[in-house]
Nucleic acid binder design. Structure first.
Length: 488
DNA sequence: AAAAAAG
């Protein structure tokens, strides 16, 4: 079997790699590293989770090892579609370049520009960037790109989805044509092919199989939720979670508002859960992700910001709170589990609303996930419609039908939440407890504070709901103020 | 029915 030591890498790089615990390269690493080391362009058709990051980082370190950068003249660029991905590449670079004197800068939006500029002035070898911030800094003459000898474009098809292709094209044109280019994409739509034909020189094409579609370590389930009320899905999710022994898992929702609601609902019910999506503060996004990686956070409730690319090793469970709008995203979402020989389980909550999207998923993966028989007690729902119809419909914050749980006294726990006691998987029947969970979630640094327009409205809303109407009493966590009111 | 990224 091929080892890293067979790929022509230097002592220092091998030592750094060994310290990360890896000794066997993945297929993309095994094929791309020797090619990239010769200086040729690489077109890598590979999905997330195949080990792309090391595949381009290691040859980059070797290439840069010789020279030194000058102020504002980086010698290599890595372009990533999301800030989190860029952050991860930086982290990997830091590890692999441990025995080299190489500087890097993380150029992403949502954070202060000053630190980034200061770093650029001191001189960095590698820029790890999202396209917007890189171009912004370029336009402000904070960075030159004519000293670039290597450029990496990662997740190109996703960049296309996000409308970044013109930006990428511009960045290509700002770098010298003599540069070496490593270009990665999971799929090759025509627009991406055009881009590679325009900017890559006789690239060596390296293709590795998509792990998620072919991965037999993943067991997929579908749980039918026979109610249109979204609340039913939250009940079903909690019931499902209680039957599982979860180390860590991701709950994917289609909408950011649902991410907030589901995360909040889970927290209120005693689960160790936190939201992540693009409207949350960048520092909070990073903190949440960090806690999740460290195992301090059990359930990450996420929009598709986390579907692709995020390097979270060994996620045991993936939950699709909704069937994704694009069937492709299903593959990416479940690809977060079953990595590196580990087993993983995925669950999809299928309500009547999801049928159409679910059909597309089944068509794509060419098989039907196993039907999960789980007795879920939806009785808490039955009175909700009655309540609703009794009251005239008003503004959303005030019309919430009151379930019986709102009338019961509730305790406020001063301590952190303890995750719900895991129940063995064999136990497939759960009667949903409606009360129980102590209030838990710590207040978060609120985005609401920055949003002057919405702030007032939210304050009114939270005032209207204060005291016995929310599970938080007078202590409405700030992060809740910007979310849609919880309906159960 | 969406999300992401520049401010």
């Amino acid at each position: 079997m091929t080892k890293f030591s067979d790929l022509g890498l230097s002592e220092q790089v091998l030592k750094a790699v060994a310290e990360t615990g890896y000794d066997t390269p993945t297929p993309i690493q095994e094929q791309a590293i020797p090619v990239a080391m010769t200086g040729l362009d690489v077109l890598g058709i590979a999905q997330t989770g195949t080990g792309k990051t090391a595949a381009f980082t290691l040859p980059m370190i070797e290439k840069l090892a010789a020279g030194r950068s000058r102020a504002r003249m980086p010698r290599a660029i890595v372009l990533e579609p999301t800030r989190e991905l860029a952050d991860q590449v930086a982290e990997a670079f830091e590890k692999y370049a441990k025995y080299h004197k190489l500087n890097w800068a993380l150029l992403i939006g949502g954070v202060s520009m000053a630190d980034q500029v200061a770093k650029l002035d001191k001189g960095v070898d590698v820029l790890i960037a999202t396209p917007g911030r890189l171009l912004d800094l370029f336009e402000r003459s904070k960075v030159m790109l004519n000293g670039v000898t290597m450029m990496v474009v990662d997740e190109a098809d996703r960049m296309l989805d996000m409308g970044f292709i013109p930006d990428i094209e511009r960045i290509f044109k700002l770098t010298p044509p003599t540069r070496q280019t490593l270009f990665f994409s999971a799929t090759m739509p025509p627009e991406i092919t055009r881009l590679t034909e325009a900017f890559l020189k006789n690239p060596v094409r390296i293709e590795v199989s998509r792990p998620a579609t072919t991965n037999e370590n993943i067991t997929q389930y579908v749980l039918r939720v026979p109610h249109k009320d979204v609340k039913a899905k939250r009940i079903a999710l909690r019931a499902l979670l209680k039957t599982l022994d979860i180390q860590n898992g991701i709950v994917f929702c289609n909408r950011k508002t649902d991410v907030d609601i589901v995360a909040k609902s889970l927290s209120v019910h005693g689960f160790n859960a936190a939201p992540i999506h693009g409207d949350l503060d960048q520092s909070l996004r990073m903190k949440t992700l960090d806690a999740f990686r460290k195992g301090e956070l059990t359930l990450l409730v996420a929009s598709d910001v986390a579907a692709r690319g995020l390097d979270i090793p060994a996620v045991g469970h993936v939950f699709n709170f909704d069937a994704p709008i694009h069937a492709d995203d299903y593959v990416h979402r479940i690809g977060r589990t079953g990595r590196a020989g580990r087993t993983g389980e995925t669950y999809l909550l299928l309500s009547p609303h999801d049928e159409k999207n679910y059909d597309k998923v089944v068509k794509l993966i060419k098989k039907e996930p196993a039907n999960l028989e789980l007795d879920v007690d939806y009785s808490a729902l039955s009175d909700a419609p009655r309540e609703g119809s009794r009251q005239p419909r008003r503004e959303s914050g005030k019309t919430r039908g009151r379930s019986q749980r709102d009338h019961k006294p509730r305790e406020r726990s001063a301590t952190q939440s303890a995750p719900v006691e895991p129940v063995k998987a064999e136990k497939k029947s759960v009667s949903e407890e409606i009360i129980s969970a102590p209030d838990v979630q710590e207040a978060r640094p609120a985005k609401a504070a920055r949003r002057t327009g919405k702030k007032e409205k939210n304050e009114e809303k939270s005032k209207a709901k204060s005291s016995n109407e929310t599970p938080f009493g007078d202590h409405m966590p700030a992060f809740l103020m910007r979310a849609t009111p919880l309906k159960d």
